[in-house]
C-alpha cells in the first residue's frame, strides 16, 4: 500500500528550518527518498522538494505535520506534475566517446567536461529515465555517479 509521493514545501528562509523538517521525518519514522532545497527568487521563502513514500494515511499525516510547523507557508501535494532529476557522472577517458555521447543524447544530456583522467556527462530527466540512464551507463565503467534529487512543478 506504500506509494511514492512528491511534496513541495514552501518555508520561511530562516535558520534551522531544514532541521525542523528533517527532524519531523526522523522522529516519526517517515521516509525521505530525496530532498532538494533552494531559495525562491525575490521572496523570503525557500522551496523544498521532498520525495517520500508511505501509505495514504502516513502521507496524510506527513502533510498535516508539515503544515503544523510554524515556518511552513504552504505544502503542495503534487498530482499533475513535471518531475526532473539531474545526474552527473565521470567516465574514464578510455571509453568510446561516441557511444557515450549517443547515450547522453538519448536522454537529452551532454558531455559537459573533458579532463585529463575522464569525461563528465550530465543528464536532467524524469527520475525513472534517470534511473535507466544510470543503468545504461554502467557499461562504460563510470568512476562516479552523482544524482541530484527531484525537483517538481505542477502542470
Amino acid at each position: 500500500m506504500s506509494e511514492r509521493r512528491v511534496i513541495s514545501v514552501i518555508v520561511s528562509n530562516e535558520h534551522g528550518v531544514l532541521t525542523r523538517i528533517t527532524g519531523l521525518f526522523a522522529a516519526r519514522g517517515y521516509n525521505i527518498e530525496t530532498l532538494t532545497v533552494a531559495p525562491i527568487p525575490d521572496s523570503k521563502y525557500s522551496r523544498l522538494t521532498i520525495v517520500t513514500s508511505g501509505s495514504p494515511r502516513v502521507i496524510e499525516q506527513i502533510i498535516k505535520q508539515l503544515h503544523k510547523l510554524i515556518p511552513v507557508y504552504k505544502v503542495i501535494e503534487h498530482e499533475e506534475l513535471i518531475e526532473k532529476e539531474m545526474v552527473l557522472a565521470k567516465i574514464p577517458l578510455g571509453e568510446r566517446l561516441a557511444d557515450v555521447e549517443a547515450l547522453c543524447k538519448a536522454y537529452n544530456g551532454s558531455i559537459v567536461n573533458v579532463g585529463k583522467d575522464g569525461i563528465i556527462v550530465m543528464v536532467a530527466d524524469e527520475p525513472k529515465r534517470v534511473k535507466n540512464f544510470v543503468h545504461a551507463l554502467s557499461t562504460f565503467a563510470p568512476k562516479e555517479i552523482i544524482r541530484g534529487g527531484v525537483v517538481a512543478i505542477e502542470r
Binding site: E60, Q61, K64, Q65, H67, K68
Partner: peptide, 8 residues
C-alpha cells in the same frame, strides 16, 4: 483545533 490530531 489541530488538524494533525484528526485522523492520526
Amino acid at each position: 483545533i489541530d488538524p494533525s490530531s484528526i485522523g492520526k
